[in-house]
């Protein structure tokens, strides 16, 4: 039985922190999905070799400090306006990769207009959409994506459809727009899901490189602090309750377009 120090050598390395991540300790709560998604974006930038020509647009929400953690160029948008800022950036610098990083309070609520029209124009940007069903940063208030009956700090008796309406499936709505080239919904609650999400994020950036439309990756996430659960308990709760309402998988994939799709929605 060899000593453990014999295994810890550079040639035996299997997994390490992505080079595009900075050394700052993340301010996110323990177990927050934001950290995992940051890591996936950083690994994608490393693997595609596009770190020096990538511009991110950070949102308002917990993800606002993403610029402290991923080493690429960043802008910070007003609440919900990240797709508008990304549109301008991409049009001025079409050779750069531009992505927005938005939460559900940002993208599905105050920023609905911006994301709808950006996707409808088929802007060649990548949208990373973190959906945890609440406004996490401000204390776990009800968001448009909150599940029916889900207790939040502003709906303590659960979301009531007669008063608050139904949870909005914004990704399915965006998938119907002709400008959407790649739309998928993933999760990062276990190793299998992380591997699939990694592929999806990488493909989204590759689709942007092909300039065939907007690529959207929704990540169904946990907010253990806002949900008042342990990190692992929140992952289990998400598996049981979020996934039936927000099923995982690809919704639109035009990266290898079929002939009938091209006739119906001709690409630019």
């Amino acid at each position: 039985m060899s000593n453990i120090n014999d295994i810890i050598k550079p040639e035996n390395l299997v997994y390490k922190k992505a080079d595009a991540l900075s050394d700052n300790i993340m301010h996110y709560c323990p177990g927050c999905s934001h950290g995992t998604v940051h890591k996936l974006i950083a690994e994608t930038l490393d693997e595609l070799g596009i770190q020096d020509k990538t511009i991110g647009v950070s949102p308002v929400g917990c993800g606002v400090f993403a610029y402290n953690y991923i080493n690429c160029d960043w802008q910070q948008a007003a609440h919900g306006r990240a797709p508008a800022l990304a549109t301008g950036t991409k049009r001025l610098m079409p050779d750069h990769y531009v992505f927005t990083y938005q939460g559900d309070g940002d993208l599905a609520s105050i920023g609905t207009s911006e994301i709808m029209h950006a996707v409808n124009r088929g802007e060649n940007i990548t949208v990373i959409f973190i959906n945890n069903g609440i406004y996490g940063m401000t204390g776990g208030q009800m968001a448009p994506t909150t599940l029916v009956g889900m207790e939040t700090s502003s709906s303590p008796y659960g979301r009531d459809i007669s008063i608050h309406g139904y949870p909005i499936k914004i990704t399915e709505i965006l998938a119907q727009l002709p400008g959407a080239a790649y739309v998928t919904r993933q999760s990062v609650h276990n190793a299998t899901a992380v591997r699939k999400a990694k592929k999806a994020v990488k493909k989204a950036f590759e689709v942007q490189g092909k300039a065939i439309g907007t690529s959207i990756v929704e990540i169904v996430s946990t907010c253990s602090s806002g949900w008042k659960m342990t990190p692992t308990g929140a992952n289990e709760w998400m598996t049981e309750n979020m996934f039936p309402n927000y099923p995982l998988g690809d919704i639109v994939d035009k990266s290898k377009p079929k002939q009938e799709d091209l006739e119906q929605f001709p690409l630019k």
Partner: peptide, 21 residues
């Protein structure tokens, strides 16, 4: 040395090594 722990770690604090004996 499967690397699952490194993959799921939200804060990227885990480094994984693997060797055959």
């Amino acid at each position: 040395g499967c690397g699952n722990c490194g993959l799921v770690c939200p804060d990227s604090v885990i480094t994984v090594y693997r060797a055959k004996e």
